[in-house]
Nucleic acid binder design. Structure first.
Lengths: 341, 341
DNA sequence: CCTGTTGACGATAACGTTGTCATCGAGGGG
DNA sequence: CCCCTCGATGACAACGTTATCGTCAACAGG
């Protein structure tokens, strides 16, 4: 058994009935005055407001949601708020939904599918009006279950062509392409990629190749580094790339953290950036412009993404036309000193 | 009128009654089998479980909370998740409460008192089992209102001796003191402080003076900078301090962001750090160890703080003895190159 | 055999609100 | 002057669950 629910409120709650008696009207009129004021005369509304103030009445949303069959809860699934981008996105959602009367219920998911399944089931008792995910839902079973729920579902962050319902994401391919074109304009000749080569990484790499192809270039060396990586990995990567591709003059890292490591290591080795080797990253860190050698990277607006998702969802909840159910949040190239800004 | 509540569920919901019929028991037995399994025979429990699976029953927490008078909702007030420290703290709370059966409801507060008052009222309809705040509650009216609620209240982040109910915070004075002692050990002679001189800043400064006093030192120059500040402010501050206190050889900034600016400006001016001027900050940024000149600062464990707060609250909700209702989360000095680490 | 206790389960009612339909008077068109 | 619409309000019942009390059988102790 769970621990929840040992809190009991003391005393008898103030009910609509009490307010109604105080105001000299019927309970249903109190209800209307509070939730649909236009249907009540100005004068009556005022009497009710006074009675509410006097009694200290606070509506009970459990009763109200039960009876009306409406829920003001939107459930937000986040794998980890310590990831600053996710936190920003959630804040964006919150801001977009401010004043809409909806409330965000945090649901923590680990990265694992099994957990996500559990959590979805833990949230369903609240009959949420909608659910949002930072990151696409992986498990097919969960996707099917969510689809059948008949409520708006928002997937954020990643792109996929067949969302459960709505999606606002970044195009990883677009980011890679922008960087490829930039490398072409800069005239780099021996080009390496380092980072993940699965999922998001694969998309970034594919886009990168495409962008380079526009100026007849190719990726001459790929150093795959799967999973979570650190600055130290980036430092080692630089050596491996220089060994694997002698004369390499430009490296695109799939993740800023690796690029930061490479920048530090290059300075350590006395290499000129970008003279000897140009280095670029992909936007997962906010401080890279404050490095000694500011890093060229792909800027990812995680707050803006969350805001856009929240706005789309809000429209949807108002039954307004939302047009496309898939939106790509803008990303752009930040050219800085590390590629010769 | 708010927008919320336009979602209506289609079809007839599966109720305990349906499950009961399927399992050949009474509704109340189904309820018990699900929420208090020990009171039901193993065999009956199994029949109920099968019936639940077959019917796809999901409990309706609105009905259950309404009838039982218990809420599984804990309301968390955050001013801004884009502040990484707050996000970490919230994640800590979430982790501490994982598996407890409680759910976190996000409540966004601006920094203003008026807003906080509004939001508290927006949350009360959920009859939360507890409320948590990142940051102490400023408004006396809100403090009184919360006190009367009779539910656990947790204030996080700042320290104050008279919390509404429970508090887990950092001692800003302690951080200042540690830095003052460090400056003493380093032998700095002409010492400046720059940053806020109100609230948290005042405490940091007071602690700093105290730490310096241990080695007979004093703060020779104070440059007050109230409000939110940026790297640029830090850059300008360095010049002002050098003008205001010629020969200044060490500066303690009340906020890392200012210290970062000063470090960048010092490098720009060709000053040696810490040879010409030592610089230290106060832990609000995570990347300062990755600067070209890593920054000495006060480390603040925001995740650990949230975790501790969540754990204390969890105990409290189980009616366990919690001992002190006030806890100080550990902070410590991170000595790095910018003060001659 | 009687009384008391315990364990498993059920019948009834109530939690506080709002959807639905009904009522009633005011005003407008024929 | 009648019929109809419209605005404002009320009576009643129902949303889905669980607290409370009650029933009934099994069993122990005297």
């Amino acid at each position: 058994m769970t621990e929840a629910g040992t809190q009991k409120r003391a005393g008898r709650a103030v009910r609509v009935e009490d307010v109604a008696r105080e105001a000299g009207v019927s309970p249903i009129t109190v209800s209307r005055a509070l939730s649909d004021p236009e249907k009540v005369r100005e004068e009556t509304r005022k009497k009710v407001a006074e009675a509410v103030a006097k009694t200290g009445y606070v509506v009970n949303r459990f009763a109200s949601s039960l009876r009306s069959g409406r829920s003001s809860i939107i459930s937000v699934f986040v794998s980890n708020l310590q990831n600053q981008h996710f936190a920003n996105a959630v804040q964006g959602c919150a801001d977009a939904l401010e004043g809409s009367g909806y409330h965000l219920l945090m649901a923590q998911t680990g990265y694992s599918d099994r957990l996500q399944q559990d959590v979805v089931e833990r949230v369903l008792p609240f009959r949420p009006a909608a659910v949002m995910f930072t990151g696409v839902v992986q498990s097919e079973r969960t996707r099917a279950q969510l689809g059948k729920l008949g409520i708006p579902v928002m997937e954020m962050w990643d792109y996929r062509p067949d969302p459960i319902d709505m999606l606002v994401g970044f195009s990883n391919a677009e980011g890679g392409r922008l960087m490829g074109e930039h490398f072409g304009r800069r005239g780099f000749r021996r080009i390496a990629y380092c980072g993940r080569t699965e999922d998001r990484g694969a998309q970034r790499l594919a886009g990168f190749r495409e962008g380079l192809a526009a100026s007849g270039r190719t990726v001459d060396f790929v150093l795959p580094l799967e999973g979570r990586r650190t600055v130290t990995d980036g430092m080692q990567a630089l050596e491996q790339i220089r060994a694997g591709l002698p004369g390499c003059d430009a490296i695109f890292f799939g993740t800023d953290i690796l690029a930061v490591g490479a920048v530090l290591e290059a300075r350590h080795l006395g290499l000129k950036i970008p003279g000897d080797v140009a280095i670029a990253g992909y936007g997962d860190l906010e401080f890279v412009k404050q490095l000694h050698t500011p890093l060229t990277t792909i800027y990812v607006g995680s707050y803006a993404l969350g805001l856009a998702a929240g706005q789309m969802l809000r429209k949807r909840l108002r039954h307004e036309e939302i047009g496309e159910r898939i939106a790509l949040s803008p990303i752009h190239l930040e050219v800085r000193a590390s590629t010769g800004g």
